[in-house]
Nucleic acid binder design. Structure first.
Lengths: 190, 190
DNA sequence: ACTGATTCTAGTACCAACTACTAAACGAGG
DNA sequence: CCTCGTTTAGTAGTTGGTACTAGAATCAGT
C-alpha cells in the first residue's frame, strides 16, 4: 500500500470529513494508514475541528432549521384579510404546542396567533404591540382548529386598537384587546 | 429554595432534554439544583443517553422527524427559581425572533417568555394562563439579552397573580400582570 | 554518501463528559 | 428508633480529544 503525500492526503481528508463528520481521528488514521498524530497535525493545518465539534455543528444546523421553521414569524395561517379593518387566521394545535401532561395548548401560542394577526392587519411599514389585555376563556386541546378574528376598532394616527376573538368550533377560547403602535417611517426608538 | 420531587423533576428533565439536547449533566444539575449524581441517576432511570449521544442522534435525524418532535415548548432559559415565589429567565433575541425590516423582536416572544416563566413558577401539576395585561415598554432588538422576572403576588387556592417585568441591561422593556389558574388535580375542563 | 529540512511518529500531561461502582448522609414514615 | 427511598460524595476507568516535546524516517540537493 503506497501512502499518499501530505498535500494529497489533506485534500482527501477534507473530503472525507465533510462527507462524514462522525469520523474520529483514530478511524481516519486507519483509513489513511498514518498515525493519529499525523491526522491531528493535518486537522490543525486545515482548521478542522475535533469530531465532537463537527457533530455539534451538524446538530446545530439541524436544530436551527427546525427553529426557523417552528419559530415562524407568523403563528397561524391567514385565511382572510381586509387591511386596517379585519383579518382571520387558522391555527391548529399540534403536539409541539401543548403541555405533555394534559394536551392543553400553551397560552403563548394563542397569544402569538392573535398578535401575529394584529401585526398583519395593520397596513403600515411598522406595527408593534404596545399593550394587550387578554383572556384565556377555555383551554385549547391538541388537534383543535383555532379560528382567530381581529377587528380594528380605531386608528388615530399612531395607535390602533384591535379586538381579537378566537374560537374552536364556534366556542370562544380566547379574547383580547390589543393596542398597536404604528408609523409609516419606522422612527420609533423607545 | 423548594426543590422538586423526584418524579416531577424527572418529567421536567425529559422535557428539558428533548427541547435542548445540548445540556450537559453539569448544566442540568445547576438548573434543577441537585447534584450531578442525581441527574445521572435520573438519566439512568429514564434511559436518557449522555449529551454526546443525544447530539449525535440529533445530528443524524431526519429534519421532518424532528420538526414534529421538538417544537420549542419553552421560550427562554430559567436561571433561578423559587417555587410559588419568583423566577428569572433569560431569552436572547435571535434572527428568527425579529422582524426582518427593523430587527425588532416580535411581541409574542416576549409574551411567551413571560408566560413560560409564570407556568414554571407555579408549583402545581396544572397551571394555565387565565388573563394577562401587558405592556411593551420599549422595543427589543436583535441580540438583546432579555432578563425576565416573575414575582408571585398571591395565590388564593385557584388563581395566582403574578407580576412580570423584563429588562435589557437594566432597562424595562416589558411588564405584565398574569392571572394563572391552577389546581392539584387537573380537573379543569372549561 | 552526508546535510538539512520536511514530515511523520511517539509519548506525556491535561481536559470534558461521561460510565460504573461504593459508601455515606439525609429525611419522612411506620 | 430504625428503615427505606433518595440524594450526595468520591474513586477508578473510558473516549476523544488539546498542547506540547522529542526523536525517527524520508527526501532533496549537493
Amino acid at each position: 500500500m503506497v501512502k499518499y503525500k501530505k498535500t494529497e492526503r489533506q485534500e482527501l481528508l477534507l473530503e472525507r470529513v465533510s462527507s462524514d463528520p462522525f469520523l474520529t481521528d483514530e478511524r481516519l488514521a486507519e483509513i489513511f494508514k498514518v498515525s493519529i498524530q499525523t491526522i491531528r497535525l493535518d486537522r490543525l493545518e486545515l482548521d478542522i475541528p475535533e469530531v465532537r465539534e463537527r457533530i455539534k455543528h451538524v446538530a446545530r444546523e439541524e436544530t436551527d432549521k427546525i427553529r426557523s421553521l417552528s419559530l415562524q414569524e407568523v403563528i397561524g395561517e391567514i385565511i382572510d384579510i381586509e387591511l386596517n379593518d379585519h383579518a382571520l387566521s387558522l391555527f391548529i394545535a399540534e403536539e409541539g404546542h401543548v403541555f405533555k401532561k394534559n394536551k392543553i395548548a400553551r397560552g403563548h401560542y394563542l397569544f402569538a396567533q392573535a398578535n401575529s394577526l394584529c401585526v398583519a392587519v395593520i397596513d403600515q411599514p411598522l406595527a408593534l404591540t404596545k399593550t394587550a389585555h387578554i383572556d384565556f376563556v377555555r383551554p385549547v386541546k391538541l388537534g383543535d382548529k383555532v379560528i382567530s378574528k381581529a377587528v380594528v376598532e380605531n386608528m388615530d394616527g399612531r395607535i390602533a386598537t384591535i379586538q381579537v376573538v378566537s374560537k374552536v368550533e364556534q366556542r370562544l377560547v380566547f379574547k383580547g384587546r390589543f393596542e398597536m403602535y404604528y408609523t409609516g417611517e419606522g422612527e420609533y426608538d423607545g
